[in-house]
Nucleic acid binder design. Structure first.
Lengths: 225, 225
DNA sequence: CGGCTCGGTGAACAAGTGTGCACACATCCT
DNA sequence: AGGATGTGTGCACACTTGTTCACCGAGCCG
């Protein structure tokens, strides 16, 4: 008669947690496992349910206590990452009006943040055009929120108050896309190549400066330097 | 004894083809099958070898006559798509100096091309940050070629001859990224929504105009000691 | 305390997967 | 012509996958 040592949900800490708290904990473990596996090269659509639960340290069937299927987990993942990344915007909001040095500074902060949360950014940039149509749409919506917040911030900072919101959002969409591309590039270069990182960062700064240069000159008087 | 009607490589045409030609034909069929499956929502890393050969109309083991594994096929796919897309650049090269109407025109041509080759663009934008590290690197290289060609063209057209190649490539990299993002957006919107397509196209045109506006106003290093 | 809820478990299944092997047969090179 | 080459085939194997089912036992509510 084998001793069935079943039901050992949280071997880490012996603290007695509430049952709801415990549920959300393993739920977060599943989401975290997805991010971890993705950061190891797997792309989300190629993740298997079993692989995921293995990484999370639970039995495959436990998955269904939290999500109907992988798509649902994907959507939850997008939402969580979106929240995390928008927290970044709030932090970076402390910067000022877009002048050159401010851009350089913001870029440094941003890239530092990217490097500190590689799994989230890898997932965001990876599945932006990779996953299921539903997931793509969700990411697009999230990026849209991001872009709109940035536009609102620029307006509030008194940047080009003459421009209609439409134009401002067009500009911010360009900025956000550039930021995400830069994040993807940064995460892909070999870790022990500070020179490449410098070049990439300089490139990134240049692109943003170019964009804001164009934004400042947008619809300005033609032929008046 | 059952009649084994084996070895029927090409049931389509009875024309006797050279054996090497036949090989390349099924090779292209495999690549084509990959594109087709991807255009149906599958992302490349989630494609199975059997699914692919099924779509291509060959037996699974025949795959190994052409590629060692799926990764190798992926790289071949990237290369083929890169060639196809660079052909586009040659066509679009007939445009002139970047003025506003020229940009609008080029955008129209580009989007038309995107819509005419949805599978290639879907694959390119989808796996740009999605696939295996090797695949990402390959796509990055391909995009780099694209970007360099564009920079060379701009130079040859006499656009900002005072700018160093580095800056020009920085600008073109921004343009290329914007183009790919636009392609991804275009392919993702519902097919029966011309209004959304118009808005997206206007957005795209605006972003490119913004970039070139900034590029025209760009001045050399503002003092970096 | 006693029953109920419900997150987690293990066993089981059919279906699909990658890959090795021997074989057919059209094409090519002597 | 005749043998060599090499692409496509069929079969086989071990393995993983998603999903079902009954069951356990801790947490919660009366």
């Amino acid at each position: 008669m084998a001793m069935k040592t079943s039901s050992r949900p949280v071997p880490l800490d012996g603290e007695p947690l509430g049952r709801g708290a415990r549920k959300q904990l393993t739920r977060e473990r599943l989401l975290d496992a997805a991010l971890t596996l993705m950061s190891r090269g797997h792309s989300f659509p190629s993740l298997s349910l079993r692989e995921l639960t293995r990484e999370a340290g639970v039995v495959p069937t436990a998955f269904y206590r939290h999500f109907r299927d992988m798509d649902e987990l994907g959507l939850a993942l997008v939402e969580e990452c979106g929240l995390t990344l928008r927290r970044l915007l709030r932090e970076a909001r402390k910067g000022g009006v877009p002048t050159h040095d401010i851009i350089r500074h913001s870029v440094a902060i941003y890239l530092q943040y990217v490097r500190a949360h590689p799994r989230q950014f890898r997932a965001a940039t990876s599945e932006r055009s990779g996953g299921s149509p539903a997931m793509r749409q969700a990411i697009r919506t999230e990026v849209g929120h991001f872009m709109r917040e940035m536009a609102q911030d620029l307006r509030q900072l008194g940047f080009r108050p003459d421009l209609p919101s439409e134009t401002l959002e067009m500009i911010c969409s360009l900025v956000v896309n550039t930021m995400l591309n830069a994040a993807s590039d940064i995460l892909d270069l070999p870790p022990e190549q500070p020179q490449l990182a410098r070049e990439l960062e300089a490139n990134f700064v240049g692109q943003l400066r170019l964009i804001f240069l164009g934004a400042e000159q947008w619809r300005a008087e033609p032929g008046t330097p």
